[in-house]
């Protein structure tokens, strides 16, 4: 048994407010662990995904990015904040093919494969060294959707990748209104 002095009218307002806060606090802390919740992606998960701590592709994170524009925007911002190569947007759309992209210390060029009509080489030339050596190429479109491909290690500062002409990565690289990042 506990006896309290009945609160004054003034104190009652504050106690009522704190009572509601404490009740809600218990709602958070004691939420039934058996209850079904949609598993949320945390921002540290997203950052780990951007920095390689969570490997690509991760289906749960990709599903969350697809669902929420805010998460996509946050992910893009995280990736663009990383040290590395960020390429300028292409000057204009090209009717004939994919335009090269340039940034300080690196360039991306494209060359059709002579052996396979349906394929193109993506050639990334690293003119300066940025650590860590990039292991993936990410392209963000205007809705912050990212297409990523893994990269082989550079040989004599050149990374070469053979992709299909109808691949997602070439589709977004053809769009001049995209941000290209080596991660």
């Amino acid at each position: 048994m506990t006896r309290f002095k009945a609160p004054s009218a003034e104190a009652l307002v504050e106690i009522r407010q704190e009572f509601a806060a404490m009740g809600t606090y218990h709602d958070f802390v004691n939420a039934d662990s058996d209850e079904e919740f949609v598993k949320e992606i945390t921002m540290s998960d997203l950052y780990a995904y951007a920095t390689g701590g969570v490997s690509y592709p991760n289906s749960a994170i990709e599903a969350a990015l697809e669902r929420a524009a805010g998460l996509r925007s946050a992910f893009r911002r995280m990736v663009l904040a990383l040290p590395g190569y960020r390429f300028e947007r292409a000057a204009a759309a090209s009717a004939g093919g994919t335009l090269p992209r340039q940034t300080q210390g690196a360039e991306i060029k494209f060359s059709p494969s002579r052996a396979h009509d349906d394929r193109t080489y993506i050639i990334i030339e690293l003119k300066s060294s940025v650590e860590p050596i990039p292991n993936s190429l990410a392209v963000f479109d205007s809705e912050d959707r990212a297409v990523r491909v893994s990269l082989p290690p550079p040989q004599d500062s050149i990374i070469q990748l053979l992709v299909r002409k109808d691949s997602d990565i070439l589709r977004v690289l053809r769009d001049p209104d995209t941000d290209v990042v080596l991660m």
């Binding site: 949320e40 921002m43 929420a68 524009a69 805010g70 998460l71 925007s73 946050a74 911002r77």
Partner: peptide
């Protein structure tokens, strides 16, 4: 805080 409302407050 940076994740509230599907990270719309992040930027």
């Amino acid at each position: 805080l940076i994740g509230i409302d599907d990270a719309t407050f992040f930027a």
